[in-house]
Simulated scan of single mutants.
Amino acid sequence: MILFISDTHCAYHLINEQIEYAQEELAIPVSCVIHLGDFGIFRPQLYDFFIRKNGSFLKPVYFIEGNHEDFDAFDSLMKKYNNVYFTYLSRSVVTEIEGYKFLSLGGSAYMDAMTTPTASVIKDHHIDDCLEIHSEGVDIIITHDCPQGIGVPNSPGLEVYGQTGFARGDELARHFSPKLWIFGHHHKWFELEKGNTRYLGLSGSRRGFALLGENYECMIINHHIPFKKPSFLSKALTFLRILRPNGPSH
């Protein structure tokens, strides 16, 4: 089965912990992982997990970008880490994984300059590029943000940003009529059947994941992973790093 997860925000270990839960506690084999954005593409955290600690994922991981990545360094970080530790699925591209044809569209609608850097914003040309793809060439759409107009509620305090989701998603739905459309970003579970499409929104990576099997059978798995309190040693080392930062600049 394909495991879908979203919004790890640099807590890469959560991917392995959710894989282990699926395989060991639920006895469900996982073939690969598709991460739906806010993976945590930041130089210090990537270096710490993959290089300094020699970390790796238990299964192949594919990801699309969210709105919380280091877009200034994104291309250079992809040259170093992409196709080595994980695989980046770029925007408006179809990739076949486990027999399904996935259309990937990372990024999100614009909110403000802090939460949505310019490079993260989904623009008209991304939608246009998607619509150039043959209507029968896509089985499942995967995005970080949801499409506008499907009723995903705003989080408390974010109502000022207006309707959730990015514009022109309805054009993609009409063009491709996908069986599934899976997204993250909003940190809440969401499910809707509309036309021929089942929309599925994932909560944060600490709250669970989704599993996709044959014939588009997709189920939500609630599995909460609590935050671990840092040890005294960890706190002391963090304090020393603040006083005398010596992290790598790789």
Rank of each mutant, 00 (worst) to 15 (best):
E69D: 11
M114W: 06
D124I: 10
L58N: 09
I34F: 08
Q45K: 12
F57C: 00
G37W: 05
I133Q: 15
Y88M: 00
D112A: 08
N83E: 13
E25P: 11
K53Y: 07
H35E: 07
Y62Q: 07
D145T: 09
G37Y: 14
G55R: 00
D145K: 13
H35C: 05
E65V: 12
E25D: 14
Q18E: 14
L36Q: 09
A113I: 07
M78G: 06
E98P: 07
D48A: 04
I28V: 06
L46N: 01
R43A: 05
L36P: 08
I97F: 15
G37S: 11
E65N: 08
K101W: 00
E98L: 08
S108T: 14
I122G: 00
G99I: 05
T143L: 04
E96C: 14
F42N: 01
H126R: 04
L103M: 10
E98M: 10
N16Q: 14
H144K: 15
R91I: 11
F74E: 00
F86L: 06
A73Y: 02
G40K: 02
N67E: 10
D139M: 04
D145Y: 10
H134N: 14
I51R: 04
R43W: 03
S90A: 14
Q45W: 05
S90N: 10
L105V: 12
E136P: 13
I64A: 07
V33W: 08
L36G: 06
F50D: 03
F42Q: 01
H125R: 13
L77D: 02
I122M: 05
T143I: 10
T118Q: 11
N54D: 05
G40L: 11
C32V: 10
Y110G: 04
H134S: 11
V61R: 06
G99R: 07
H126L: 05
V94L: 00
I19A: 02
D124S: 06
V84D: 06
Y21N: 09
I142P: 06
A22D: 13
A109H: 12
G66A: 09
S31H: 03
E98V: 05
S56T: 15
E132Y: 14
R52W: 01
A22S: 10
L58V: 05
F102L: 03
I142A: 04
I51Y: 14
I34H: 07
F86Q: 06
G99Q: 03
I64H: 03
A113W: 08
I28Q: 00
D38P: 01
G40P: 05
E65K: 15
